[in-house]
């Protein structure tokens, strides 16, 4: 395992991009990709938690006893999720309201716990930081791709993240494909995206 930090970072972007290659963390990707703003916001929040918890767990990896490690990881992750919750309430309240219960639910996002167990518990701080950042960015990009598709065709608009400006994409005469912003469309889009990823990523 003598990989450089750069390699740990890039593997999260394509080779092991979380929601597609490792089929983990599907709930947020289905639920918050109605608009681009929600998708990116959720991605950034998850990345923050991933990076912080990966680093802290990697620092503590020799201190945490083996038998209770999962409980320790959950406490660390839950702490950072609470930090994100409070930060978002303070600085991005409208987004916090839109994402609703999905912010506290980052705690049970399998990606975060999965990386803690599979990577941070065995590797150094720098590698864990790179791994967390790579996975987080990969997750954010997947959310972005799916939410751009769903928002443009589902509501005919595009909400720019961070400044909350709604851009009309097709103009007023466009009849939105409303099916896509509802639950069935979410499942269908994700299934087809997975199919495209499989086609592109032939071994």
């Amino acid at each position: 395992m003598a990989k450089s930090a750069v390699q740990e970072f890039t593997k999260g972007l394509w080779a092991e991009v979380p929601p597609f290659r490792l089929v983990l963390g599907l709930c947020p990707i289905l639920a918050v990709t109605k608009t681009l703003e929600n998708g990116v916001g959720m991605g950034v929040a998850t990345t923050f938690v991933l990076v912080c918890s990966n680093m802290l767990i990697s620092l503590l990896r020799d201190v945490i006893p083996k038998q209770v490690r999962i409980a320790c990881y959950i406490v660390v992750i839950a702490t950072f999720v609470t930090v994100v919750e409070l930060l978002m309430q303070a600085f991005a309240y409208p987004l916090f309201l839109k994402l609703g219960i999905f912010i506290p639910l980052i705690v049970v996002n399998c990606i975060v716990l999965g990386r803690a167990e599979a990577f941070a518990a065995k590797n150094g701080v720098v590698a864990s930081f790179a791994d967390g950042l790579g996975m987080g960015v990969g997750f954010t990009l997947s959310l972005t791709a799916l939410s751009i598709f769903r928002e443009i065709f589902g509501s005919g608009t595009l909400t720019l993240p961070f400044i909350s400006t709604v851009l009309p994409v097709f103009g007023p005469s466009f009849e939105p494909f409303a099916f896509l912003v509802e639950a069935p469309g979410a499942f269908l889009c994700l299934g087809l995206m997975l199919c495209i990823m499989n086609m592109l990523g032939k071994k």
């Binding site: 069935p184 299934g191 499989n198």
Partner: peptide
């Protein structure tokens, strides 16, 4: 079809079921 196998077709199926519950 090969690329659709496993999880992918599962999600499409879930979409159909979700449509029924819709």
């Amino acid at each position: 079809p090969k690329p659709l196998q496993d999880t992918s077709i599962g999600l499409v199926g879930a979409g159909m079921m979700s449509l029924a519950f819709f």
